[in-house]
Design a protein around this nucleic acid. Sequence first.
DNA 1: TTGGTTGTTGAGCGATCATTCATAAACTTG
DNA 2: CAAGTTTATGAATGATCGCTCAACAACCAA
Lengths: 201, 201
Amino acid sequence: MPRPPSYDREAALAKAVSLFWQKGYHGSSMKQIEQALDMRPGSIYATFGSKDGLFSEALANYAQQGGADLSEHMAGYDSIVAGLQAYLREIAGSCADTDCAPARACLIVKTLLEASNTNPALYSQAQSVLAAIETSFAELLESARNQGEIAAQTDCRRLARLLQSQIMGLRAMAERNPSAAELEQLGDDMAAILESYKVRN
Amino acid sequence: MPRPPSYDREAALAKAVSLFWQKGYHGSSMKQIEQALDMRPGSIYATFGSKDGLFSEALANYAQQGGADLSEHMAGYDSIVAGLQAYLREIAGSCADTDCAPARACLIVKTLLEASNTNPALYSQAQSVLAAIETSFAELLESARNQGEIAAQTDCRRLARLLQSQIMGLRAMAERNPSAAELEQLGDDMAAILESYKVRN
DNA sequence: TTGGTTGTTGAGCGATCATTCATAAACTTG
DNA sequence: CAAGTTTATGAATGATCGCTCAACAACCAA
């Protein structure tokens, strides 16, 4: 009986992610959103409720994608530490590619910094997402510890926070638009940090 | 002959820094600025030209203060590496203090991320400031190299970028609002990274 | 005092902000 | 086709955006 929607919800969300990733929450006007999604205001509000609602869904979508990327990446490595080291280098490499992504810095971190004193709901969401990522890293590191890759007395949550800080720093630095070589060096140097946590053999 | 200004330019700038640091560029409206500076729009525009101009001066002011803080800090240390390690720990400690500063994350980095795809002038300014800070670190590290603290073949610019990334990551992580203990651990872990660059003795 | 200069004020500018809703269009079912 | 239901549209909303400027206030030199 009803008229079916003419747009693709997932595709619209992907476009929203791209816009918000580039311009942030305050930097993206509804007019720009309408243009990016090729939707009229009525449809946007019927589908996502509000600008906040759309941003929230976009952020969740981005985080889910990032988590899937990490899982997929780690599946290719027997050694967890080696996988995490390669992950750091991969981030450095992808940030070096021009127009590989809408922006270099992480959307979650951008949201954390932008929303911390202006939008409690988005700030809280960014905090939750980052806490979940920290937990993912901690679980990976616990596996590494169980496999004897890193020392038995390693504080995995603590090391997970150090690792997450590395990624935050790497991608923030990438936003300075350094050369590809400089970014690769930085990725290598950060990967080397993990080396010192490995069990001596 | 003329009527002297009734406000204190430096004091007004300090208040602008505080507001922008908290809410960012797009998140600070002229209405909020008027209230924070206790100035009427006419006076603000006569003094700073525009919202962009005010932000630009505030950012420069913040950066200068940061540079002075670094110099003052380093003056208290014979060992440059030890000074930089203590600097990382000091940042962690001050970020842990509630209401020690308007925000934890660095205003320059916040500006870099917010302005990169919305405001070329501010983006460029943030880039310049960060490049200058990188150079300061590189010069400090060159001195450390000359004094034999770190290996003679050390690439000081490269290490300076790693150091700057640590600070970016540390202060971004601080915006997640971790416990004081967790932040101190993170500062310690980042200081320990520099340990591995020291010359063995 | 007075004249000249500069600083301060705040109402109000056009533009844009996020959002709404009456209307029109599109589709399925009977 | 016609009836019924849902979606799409975009002009229009009040609020707020950054900003201007004519009028006024405050000061100094003469």
